[in-house]
Design a protein around this nucleic acid. Structure first.
Lengths: 115, 115
DNA sequence: GTTATATTTCTACCTTACTGGAAATATCAT
DNA sequence: ATGATATTTCCAGTAAGGTAGAAATATAAC
């Protein structure tokens, strides 16, 4: 993850609705949720939801897949891992985060089914 | 660090100039740099610099102190530690970051002189 | 007190981000 | 094909963020 990607991810998370949305998807795991269910849970209009979903998607924090007529969105766990790695490496003066943290992140991902 | 504080910190870092500024201050350590020097290094106008410094300061990512007629700004290392802790705790589904990471962050701070 | 330096504050402007409603698209069921 | 559901796209309006220059404040030197 380079600086521009990090800025994109930080900006995507720096919003009430989007952070709540992202946390909801993380909580839900790799299966994710369809847009409609998310809209209900967060009480936002469909057009707003799409706007925020696309914002998170552009930042590669979430993934999209269609299941019949519904679009499911799921958190991209690698993205957060990379973001945290970027922050600890570049924004803590190297003083933070023992290297043992980084490998753990990958192995700790919930098992996914297809891709 | 609560959600609103995290959003504030994320938003403060989610900008080209401010991220560069913050990283410059982290690199510099607890002594920090006077505003004028920062403006020179980042090639930005004084009024813009103040704008971004205040943004970072509001997010408690940097600290300010006056030395004679100059205002020094320095990174607040605890803030980044807390932000990373927040992200790993709340946005990685608990799957990330072994607890050993967190204490390390505090002990790894560069020694400061006064407060 | 006057002058110079360092930084902030103020104001105006421009751009981008966000919200909300209506229309369009995609998929499925009949 | 028609109708229903799920979601996106489009558009307009409003709010917030960022940039820039000029004026104001704070400190220091003379």
């Amino acid at each position: 993850m380079n600086t521009q990607e990090a800025i994109g991810a930080l900006g995507a998370l720096a919003h009430d609705t989007r952070l709540a949305l992202y946390r909801l998807l993380v909580e839900r795991g790799p299966d994710g949720l369809p847009a409609g269910v998310i809209a209900d849970k967060l009480h936002i209009l469909p057009s707003s939801l799409t706007f925020h979903l696309q914002h998170l998607h552009r930042a590669r924090l979430i993934r999209q897949r269609r299941v019949s007529r519904r679009l499911f969105y799921a958190a991209d766990f690698e993205a957060m891992t990379e973001l945290v790695a970027y922050l600890t490496k570049n924004c803590c003066g190297g003083a933070w985060a023992p290297p043992s943290c980084l490998p753990v992140a990958n192995t700790a991902q919930p098992k996914r089914r297809s891709a």
